[in-house]
Amino acid sequence: MAQQANHALPAGYQLDEYHIEHQLSLGGFSIVYLATDREGQFVAIKEYLPNSLALRGEGDIKPVITDDHMPAFRYGMKCFFEEGRALAKLSHPNVIRVLNFFRANNTVYMVMEYEHGRTLQEFIQKNRAVITENFMRNVFTKLLNGLREVHSHKLLHLDLKPSNIYMRNDYTPVLIDFGAARQTLASDTPMLKPMYTPGFASPEHYHQRELLGPWSDIYSVGASMYACLAASAPQAADSRAEKDRLVPAMVRWEGQYSDQLLETIDWCLCLNHLYRPQSVFALQKALTEPVEKPRPPIAAAATNKKTWLDHVVGKLKGKAGPK
């Protein structure tokens, strides 16, 4: 379906007690703004505005929602509330803080703490040299602290990927965009269908939603770690299920990172959810194990497929099976 893009609220617009500075991003479901509050503090404000249902013309303030679209618009709003509800309960340094929630212009807004930095997605594109073993372990261990908090509230994120992980300037990660709650609610409403970024969603996301669990977020964490190393998304789980062309991390970056880190990534990326780490805790344990020095890469031979396989199989044999 062709969809028109929405126009953002103009800079300088007074939205409730906030002053809009400018638009930060425009997604299919919402627009995020940088704004200042009464004290002049920066905040990020997310506006619920699904572009398939509500359109704001250039220069307009209130979006147009036709009567036809009203039920779906309201239904989507319910999903937006789920996101707010989920986040409001969480108070953790690695999870974005919600500061306020209000209604205006026929729609609803979520006010968040503004974080200085950029998404992990942007970060890995621009800072290849920084993606060291230590960087990976540090960032993901902290991120998992946040995810643990999420899971301990019986919530799943379900949309973890580098573009939904924000990197503060001090390299601490923050989970943003809990479109997740929304996904579970809206998956049966075509107009509000969540858009997965292929590559990060677990296999059970696609066809077996009743199997979703912490291990599904863990798959996404694995895919995000893989993407950090590869600078691009791994093969999507649904197509892997047909023909798995994903080169195991252990093969692809052999010698550049510790075996143990690479194995951990592959462990998270098991297609069978039962073979993955079953809890964030289990994964964190693996990530905080002492690092062995990466071994020097085996030149030339490493590109030989047979050697790859022998090598991996050799390593796997030496390991205990998945827990």
Partner: peptide, 24 residues
């Protein structure tokens, strides 16, 4: 309900706000 009523919207917002208060 397929749709939220005005009332429910208000209630949902109040609920989220009070949760924010509680956890902040």
């Amino acid at each position: 309900k397929t749709e939220l009523t005005e009332d429910e919207i208000e209630r949902a917002i109040q609920e989220i706000r009070s949760t924010i208060q509680k956890f902040s």
